[in-house]
Simulated scan of single mutants.
Amino acid sequence: MGKTRSANHVIITGTTGMVGEGVLIRCLNSPEIDGVLVINRKPCGYVHSKLKEIIHQDFFNFSPIKDQLSGYNACFFCLGISSVGIDKDTYFKMTYTLTMHVAETLSRLNKGMTFCYVSGSGTNRNGKLSWQKVKGNTENELMQLPFEQVFNLRPGFIKPIKEQKYAHKFYQFINWLFPLGRAISKNGFCTMQELGDAMINALSHNNEKRILEGSDIIKLAKEPS
């Protein structure tokens, strides 16, 4: 008789963006995931027997919905903004402050939760660029919270899944570069399938490595759950 698998119920943020949508697709298609809660400011546009959606505008105040946020053993945090054209204070608020508020709330409501944070290639809290430091400090502070596990994933270029609705349009013009880029640098290039599968596999792997660069994401995606 095979080993009984624990049920996996996950919360995903950012599913109206390319990364969150891709992770959602992989979770809905995975037999390892039993239920998915998405929290969005607008409907994600997906309907599935596993899926529950909460429309909530203020991510800095989860009090009105906190009773719906317990009973989950993972959060795949895919919410974020680019630093391009954004002033430093706004970027800090929408990257560090928002992420930490959500994480602190979930860590209080769910004991034994795994938190997967989509950071980015080049993140470095000792780096020269402001965005590197903000994301690096966010990673570090997340690892201090009382989660069972925290994984900081640092993908570079991500090749989207074909059926995605929220993939950036420029990807259709530069996807042909992916095989070449992958051959040159695994750390800089991964697929959306690999990123989503790495998060799913993280739930059943007590991985000592908490910061996952591109090549680590690819490796974890291939490991059997």
Score class of each variant (00 low, 15 high):
Lys3Thr: 15
Thr4Ala: 10
Arg5Gly: 01
Arg5Tyr: 05
Ser6His: 12
Ala7Ser: 14
Ala7Asn: 08
His9Ala: 06
Ile12Phe: 03
Gly14Ala: 05
Thr15Lys: 02
Thr16Ala: 01
Thr16Asn: 02
Gly22Arg: 06
Gly22Trp: 08
Gly22Ile: 09
Val23Thr: 14
Val23Tyr: 04
Arg26Leu: 14
Ser30His: 05
Pro31Tyr: 04
Pro31Glu: 09
Val36Asp: 02
Ile39Asn: 01
Asn40Gln: 04
Asn40Gly: 01
Arg41Thr: 02
Arg41Met: 00
Cys44Arg: 01
Tyr46Asn: 02
His48Trp: 04
Lys52Ala: 11
Glu53Ser: 00
Ile54Cys: 00
Gln57Ile: 00
Asp58Met: 00
Phe59Thr: 00
Phe60Ser: 00
Phe62Gly: 00
Phe62Leu: 15
Ser63Cys: 10
Pro64Trp: 00
Asp67Ile: 02
Ala74Val: 02
Ala74Thr: 02
Ala74Gln: 03
Phe76Gly: 05
Phe76Pro: 04
Phe77Gly: 04
Leu79Met: 12
Leu79Gly: 03
Ile81Ser: 01
Ser83Met: 01
Val84Pro: 00
Ile86Pro: 00
Tyr91Cys: 07
Thr95Met: 06
Thr95Phe: 06
Thr95His: 06
Thr97Tyr: 03
Met100Val: 04
Glu104Phe: 03
Thr105Asp: 04
Ser107Glu: 11
Arg108Pro: 01
Lys111Ser: 11
Met113Phe: 01
Phe115Val: 03
Cys116Ala: 13
Cys116Ser: 13
Cys116Gly: 08
Tyr117Asn: 12
Tyr117His: 14
Tyr117Ser: 05
Asn124Leu: 08
Trp131Ile: 11
Lys133Tyr: 01
Val134Arg: 05
Lys135Trp: 01
Gly136Leu: 04
Gly136Glu: 03
Thr138Met: 10
Asn140Phe: 08
Asn140Ser: 15
Asn140His: 12
Met143Cys: 09
Leu145Glu: 04
Pro146Lys: 02
Phe147Thr: 03
Gln149Ala: 10
Val150Cys: 07
Ile158Gln: 06
Lys159Val: 15
Lys159Pro: 09
Lys159Trp: 10
Ile161Arg: 07
Lys162His: 12
Glu163Arg: 11
Gln164Leu: 08
Gln164Asn: 08
Lys165Trp: 06
Ala167Thr: 11
Ala167Ile: 03
His168Ile: 13
Lys169Thr: 12
Gln172Asp: 09
Gln172Glu: 10
Phe173His: 09
Phe173Asp: 06
Asn175Lys: 09
Asn175Cys: 08
Trp176Leu: 10
Trp176Ser: 13
Trp176Gly: 12
Leu177Cys: 09
Ser185Glu: 08
Lys186Asp: 14
Lys186Gly: 13
Asn187Gly: 15
Phe189Trp: 15
Phe189Leu: 10
Cys190Trp: 14
Thr191Pro: 14
Met192Ile: 12
Glu194Tyr: 09
Glu194Phe: 11
Gly196Val: 13
Gly196Asn: 10
Gly196His: 09
Ala198Gln: 09
Ile200Asn: 06
Ile200Thr: 06
Leu203Pro: 04
Leu203Lys: 06
Leu203Phe: 04
Asn206Met: 09
Glu208Asp: 15
Arg210Gln: 12
Ile211Asn: 13
Ile211Asp: 14
Gly214Trp: 07
Ser215Ile: 14
Ile217Ser: 12
Ile218Ser: 14
Lys219Gln: 15
Leu220Val: 15
Pro224Cys: 07
Ser225Asn: 10
